[in-house]
């Protein structure tokens, strides 16, 4: 877990996140306003989204989160990226599951599964 320390500068980010129910074959982007520490990475933004808005958000969170295992592959602003190694650059961001893999739910894909 990586909550920002007290007193640190925070920013509000407009986030478009892919949501797809576990048994669904289609999904859609949903929009949230999420408060994070300035300079934080995408995985911590998703953790903040889950705390601040929706505890049901499913993303690859049962993994190393320190750049080693490769399980948090995502599509960030249209480009392949590891969530734990990608900083939130501006005040808007789009986060989707990686291309070419079966989606298990929301941002969790079969690559980080089977």
């Amino acid at each position: 877990m990586s909550d920002s320390a007290p007193g640190r500068a925070t920013i509000t980010v407009a986030v478009r996140v892919w949501r797809q129910a576990p048994d669904a074959t289609v999904g859609r982007f949903e929009r949230y306003l999420v408060e994070i520490a300035q300079g934080d990475h995408v995985l911590n933004l998703l953790a903040a989204l889950r705390r601040q808005h929706d505890p049901t958000l499913c993303y690859p969170d049962h993994f190393c989160k320190i750049g080693t295992c490769g399980a948090c592959a995502l599509l960030v602003d249209g480009k392949p990226a590891l969530g734990c190694r990608t900083l939130v650059a501006g005040d808007t961001i789009e986060i989707a599951p990686p291309r070419g893999r079966a989606i298990l739910a929301d941002l969790l894909s079969a690559a980080s599964g089977t």
């Binding site: 576990p22 048994d23 049901t56 298990l104 739910a105």
Partner: peptide, 10 residues
């Protein structure tokens, strides 16, 4: 708050 058990992360 999520229906069903499948991949119910909550």
């Amino acid at each position: 708050r999520q229906g069903g058990l499948r991949l119910n992360w909550e």
